[in-house]
Structure formats: structure tokens, C-alpha cells
Design a protein around this nucleic acid. Structure first.
Lengths: 91, 91
DNA sequence: GATCTTTACGACAGACGTAATAATG
DNA sequence: CATTATTACGTCTGTCGTAAAGATC
């Protein structure tokens, strides 16, 4: 599991299409599709239902999405905290 | 930033030595040292004080450590939640 | 000089993109 | 047949490990 895969998952979950999510991430469809497949493989369960009109979250995917968002926002907070500790008090 | 780097950081913070942390992660020292350096480079600030007896956390490192632990435990929770959603109700 | 961490460097695995294939309405 | 996702495949970047080098008591 990687942060890239998690970002990919969130983008696909929000856009509902691999293609649109890929464009948003400045990526092409194949690598993005592989991220999702690898994630599902590692988790041992599918997260999306594939339809000819896009991807729709399954219950397992909705459960994962909540954690995924918290992981990404925690990463963001970690970065800002360090910059705050370093840049803030010393000014 | 990658989960591998975050795991490396936590291991070094807890062990206080790159060598011991590397052994714990089934890795050698050079890649582990590179993970820390890359992380510090990305954050724009050193996280450890290098001494001839090992590595000691700086204030910025202590701040990052709290977030790092939460990120890793959130990842763990995400995995278990998905497995719970998939395996639990269907039994 | 002993104990750490870091840099050099050659080899291998992984990830990207283009192009082709599959599936579905 | 149009639209979407997936697989094949060649290339290229990135990460590993061994070995050498720096730094500090």
C-alpha cells in the first residue's frame, strides 16, 4: 500500500470515472487503474463496482474512503506541523 | 513522501540508531538513511540530531512523530475495517 | 581506531505511457 | 459503435545492497 494508491482511490471515488480522475491527477488511465487493482488485491476485496459508465463505490469502498481521507489529511497536517515548529517560533 | 519513509522514520525514532532500525525493518543502513534524508529534504528541516552514538529527535522530529504514528495506525485501521466489512457481515 | 552515518555505484524491480484488447449498453 | 476499464509491452526512473568514505569521540 502506498500514499499514491490512496490518493488514486480517493480521486476515483470522488470522480466516479478512472479517466476523469486520471486527468485530475495528471496521469493516464492505465497506471491509475493499476493502482486501484493493486489496492483491491492487497485488501483482498473489490472496492468498486465496474459499470460501462464508470466506477461506483461498494460498501467496502465507502468504509475505506473515510479512512483514506483521514490518512491524507493527517499527512498534510504532519507537513504543516513540522513547518510550523521550524518556521514559527524562530521568527 | 511515502509510507515507507514514514515507517522508517518511526523505527529510527524509536530505536535511536539507524543500524538497529534497519535490522528491525529487514533492511540495510544506506536505504534507511536515505529515507530519513529524503524526508528531511521534503519537509525542509532536519528531524534528528546526528551524534556519533546514534540519532536523537529534534523538536520538529517529535512533532512529526505524533502524526507519523497516527498515519500508520490509521492505515492499519483502514485495512482491518475493509476486511471487517467484507468478512464480518457475510458470515 | 571504533562506532556511527552517509555517499558511490552497479544491478534489479516497479511505474509510466502508447497502443491494443475486452466488455457493456 | 461509442464509451469505459483493463492488459501488453517497451522504456526509464528509482531503490536496493555491497563497498568505500566521512565524521566524531
Amino acid at each position: 500500500m502506498s500514499l499514491t494508491q490512496i490518493q488514486s482511490f480517493v480521486a476515483v471515488a470522488e470522480e466516479g470515472h478512472v479517466g476523469r480522475a486520471a486527468h485530475r491527477l495528471h496521469l493516464t488511465q492505465p497506471p491509475l487503474s493499476r493502482h486501484i487493482l493493486a489496492l483491491e488485491d492487497e485488501l483482498g476485496a473489490p472496492l468498486f463496482e465496474r459499470t460501462p459508465r464508470g466506477m461506483r463505490l461498494l460498501p467496502a469502498g465507502e468504509a475505506f474512503l473515510q479512512h483514506a481521507r483521514r490518512i491524507l489529511s493527517e499527512v498534510d497536517a504532519a507537513v504543516h506541523t513540522v513547518r510550523g515548529v521550524v518556521g514559527g517560533p524562530s521568527k
